[in-house]
Amino acid sequence: MKNIATLVLMIISTSLMAQNKAEHTVDVVGEGIVNIVPDEVTITVRVENTGKNAKELKQENDRTVNNVLAFIKSMNIDNKDVSTEYIRLNKNYEYNTKTYTYSANQAIAIKLRDLTKYEVLMNGLLESGINRIDGISFSSSQIKSLESEARKKAISNAKMKATEYASVLDQTIGKAVSISEYRAVNTPMPMYKTMAMDSEGGSSQQTIAPGEMEVSVTVNVSFLLN
């Protein structure tokens, strides 16, 4: 019985010593950046009308939206790339005339996977009845592979930094004991003309410049210090 108690005490003591033995690490931040020209764009447009009769206004908006959707379909854009963002019907009070008016809004988002069709699409949307452009955002169809490449660059950068720190101290780094990641995609701000200029020009005009988007991954890595 005494031998068992002694063995238990030895195990506990060894465990406590292991816990109290702090690991020496070198903690670094690594960054990986990949740049690419976007090959996709998501355009958010709106059909908006105002009037005094809510029912008639809604019907007018619906007719315009139907024309817009028919045009989008004629562009052979996949249904999965077209979505209704919201539908709103608001009642507004005019203080000057002391009457009520209504505003009907419907926003549609279109993801265009072929940027060469942008001008034709925008001109057609204007002709079919949209009267607001809420914004556009660029993206890349290769985002997954770009993120993977950025991660590898970030880890490589972290390892390089840790190795440099350790070498100055005549030491080496061991295995990584912890890794945490922060990922960011910085899309370019589009440069485009106003709707009025678009509607006056032909499809040969260039009204946007996609620029370059940046995929950035930052990692925090702790390496054992030998």
Rank of each mutant, 00 (worst) to 15 (best):
L89W: 05
R46A: 15
I208T: 14
M191C: 09
E147D: 13
D62E: 10
K73F: 09
N96I: 12
T163E: 04
L169M: 12
T25V: 09
N49A: 15
G201R: 12
Y93N: 02
G211I: 11
V34K: 08
V68G: 00
A162M: 00
E212I: 15
N61F: 06
V219P: 03
N220R: 07
Q106C: 09
M10N: 09
S141H: 03
Y100H: 06
T25A: 06
A196V: 10
V68Y: 01
N53E: 06
I72L: 07
N186Y: 13
V215K: 03
F223L: 05
M160C: 07
V68N: 00
S216Q: 13
V177D: 05
E23V: 15
T14E: 02
M213G: 05
A22T: 14
K2E: 02
Y93S: 06
N66S: 15
M160W: 09
E127R: 12
N123D: 11
L126N: 04
L89I: 06
G124I: 06
E23D: 15
I136F: 14
I130Q: 01
T207V: 14
T99D: 04
E119T: 15
F71W: 02
E200Y: 15
S145Q: 14
Y192D: 09
S83P: 07
S13C: 13
E60N: 15
M160Y: 10
S204E: 08
M195V: 12
N123P: 08
V221N: 00
Y182V: 09
Q142I: 10
Q206P: 05
R113S: 15
S222N: 05
N66V: 09
L9C: 08
V219N: 00
V37Q: 01
Y182W: 08
E200K: 14
E214P: 10
I11R: 01
N61E: 08
K117P: 11
V185E: 07
Y118S: 06
Y165R: 11
V215D: 04
I179N: 01
T97E: 02
G202V: 05
G124K: 03
V65N: 03
N66T: 14
I12T: 06
T207G: 13
N20R: 13
I179C: 01
M195K: 14
R132F: 12
S203I: 15
G211E: 00
N35L: 13
L225H: 01
G30T: 04
K152V: 13
I87G: 05
S145D: 11
T64G: 07
V26A: 03
E48D: 09
K55W: 08
L224G: 08
Y182T: 10
S139L: 04
A54S: 06
A184C: 09
L9G: 10
